[in-house]
Design a protein around this nucleic acid. Sequence first.
RNA 1: GCACGAGUGGCGGAAUUGGCAGACGCACCAGACUCAAAAUCUGGCGGGGGUGACUUCGUGAGGGUUCAAGUCCCUCCUCGUGCACCA
Length: 803
Amino acid sequence: MAAPYNHREVEEKWRKIWEEKPVNVDDGKKQKYYCLDMFPYPSGNGLHVGHWRGYVISDVWSRYKLMQDYFIIHPMGWDAFGLPAENYAIKNGVHPAISTEENVNNIRKQIKQIAAIYDWDMEVNTTDPNYYKWTQWIFVQMFKKGLAYQKEMPINWCPSCKTGLANEEVVNGKCERCGADVTKKNLKQWMLKITAYADRLLSDLDTLDWPEKVKKMQTEWIGKSYGAEVDFAIDGRKEKLTVYTTRPDTLYGATFMVLAPEHELAASLASDEQKAAVEDYIYQTSLKSSVDRLQNKEKTGVFTGSYAINPMNGKQIPIWLSDYVLADYGTGAIMCVPAHDDRDFEFATKFDIPIVQVIAKDGKEIEHMTEAYTDASGTMINSGDWNGRESAELKLEAPAIIEEMGVGKKTVNYKLRDWVFSRQRYWGEPIPIVHCPDCGPVAVPEDQLPLTLPEVENYEPTGTGESPLAAMTDWVNTTCPCCGKPAKRETNTMPQWAGSSWYFLRYVDNKNDKELVSKEKADKYLPVDMYIGGVEHAVLHLLYARFWTKFLYDIGVVSFEEPFTKLFNQGMITGKNGIKMSKSKGNVISPDDLVRDYGCDSLRLYELFVGPPELDSEWDDRGIDGVYRFITKLWKLVMDHKDDGADQSPAVVKERNRLVYDITTRLENFSLNTVVSGFMEHLNNLSAMAKDKAVDTETMKVFVQLLAPFAPHISEELYHVLGNEESVFAGGWPAYDEKLMEDDTIEIAVQVNGKLRATINIAKDATKEAALADAKEALGAKLSGNVVKEIYVPGKIVNFVVK
RNA sequence: GCACGAGUGGCGGAAUUGGCAGACGCACCAGACUCAAAAUCUGGCGGGGGUGACUUCGUGAGGGUUCAAGUCCCUCCUCGUGCACCA
């Protein structure tokens, strides 16, 4: 009897050997494959089994590609700027740099337990001045190109984090980070002009091998729409009102207009009678938080007392103010066609404004309209020259007609807003700008980067809209790099997303102090072939990283426009009842004990076995016994096996071929949970065969090779036990023969009226006559009554329909 | 409100895309080994009926298409995710 399986011994042994002699080596000839994990925030809580799963998935995929003879770029790093470290500093008085370093060391140790083939020479940390030097450098390039600019406007403000937020960071009116209700605050902010890239960010989605869900979310976030701007004259005034509409075909049905209360003409349009009401409405709206405005969908509004002229029919239409019109989309003013828009219908009904139908429904005018007819198909009515035309086609032509009439133009609009880029917090990259009273904002010269984050006594956010850095007068007061006169540093810092928008570039050249990445290395190793991480970054990180990459492409740093060719979103591992693992819920499961008790290989397999990798799974510790049994069973089979002389009978060859086929196709389909069950199934088969005679060495070798990406230690050990000298990862990926997959005879089901009554073994290409004869024989007396139909689908089924 | 997912044994989940529902595993039950337990091995394991070969019902609910439906179509329920007055 061979020694029982001792996971600690085997795993430690190979870990040492792999460290001395890495299995993933760039010989200059191999093709590269870049498999990237979304790098973690080094939290003080450490890793739980959910983080582990993502890293196991990416490592399995990397090792599979390694065995297919690619050179693998598989790096790991730290997204280490951000609020938790700063909050920890506020509470405990420990500098964020210190707590961050501790956390990084701790998590690195935990990640190393996964035994992934990470190249730790490539490690990056966004808080390292040698790293954020280049984050600042990119900002400076954007500033030079006019893509980073300052603007004073009401921005999203989190009263709990005491900082401004980007649109992407506001989820249902709440702060993405802490969940507090977001308010508006008027602040002068640094903005990045992501809208200049809206079209490219949209159209290039087509080139990506990403989950449709994520592409759709980005498409909707960018929110491109086609329509027209239309000018409405204001009765008795010089100014005109311009609106944006996607339905210029309904122009004749516009019976009123609504302006956002923030519109620049809102107050001045008020007639003497309406003045008090208008001013009150504008004031009341300004008090509302964005959550209030979102939640209360009951329409409110006030009539200004002024009228506009519908340019199509010259009719006077009243101008109203209402907070359902958004100030920062389109022109902040809309034409209202209550007959064909739900919101306008609701408003018109409430305030008793006329409703004019301009598109016929089922060829007729509706007698009593109870809801808007929003279908864009039908014949135009009540529309002057346009009567009788098809609305769908007119919708496309109308912008040109309006343009010809000189009352508007064709336009597109986006929901995407520019990126509010400054944060009134300490623990982030300082924005490398000096404000000079004479020269205005001036970039810190590139040879003076990095502009390091100074140490402060007090990290506490001020809440005034100023960063804690503002109190550091020594640091703030400087001279203008342009004219040399006294000037002040920008005291806001960059958002957490800055460092993560380009880190994948830095890995491959992380020690370069001349460039953020050399052209040579970027061309050789990038872009990322496979990117693995949670879906929570679908619009935030993934949109920002695409934007920055496109910018770096434009200024010639990289020669590709999209950073991540393929994306895989792994599901979340939750605690019992689908509750997200968190320290406060007390349901966090640490991988450390499981690794100790069952070994890395078992945990790796179990992480995959819990469920489909793309779906959320509830964690249940008990199941890991199953994969542990599988591993010890395999160990015993290989250790006890004595090859009785290379039995290569067709049955043996076929089983082996089937094994390779099953595992390879399931792996290619990313069906990693069924890969594991496939291994179990085949091991059960082999164990059953082993009772009669020894399993042949070749089959065992192939089994172990296939298992290697999933359970690397035991596979490597058994591969050597089976007499191989080199590493299992150098031995290539086993091939299968498609032709051998087809059996000459197969078992098919025999049904009567669709119910299973027998099975028969039959030649796979048997004729109908032969199949039916066999089937009848198998059924015997069970086939009684009047057979009205006989169905035979070769290779599938025989079915008799009986009356 | 709109859009997209999902719903299968006690549990996690399979099902080559319309062709033998429940692979694989957990838990559980019985047996072997043991003084005993653990570990291991063997067998069983959706519900009802039958000593039995068998039989019947069964994939959230109801209806439909088909020789055949977990899979396709219609209506509805539940859960999840995204968007949420974007004109």
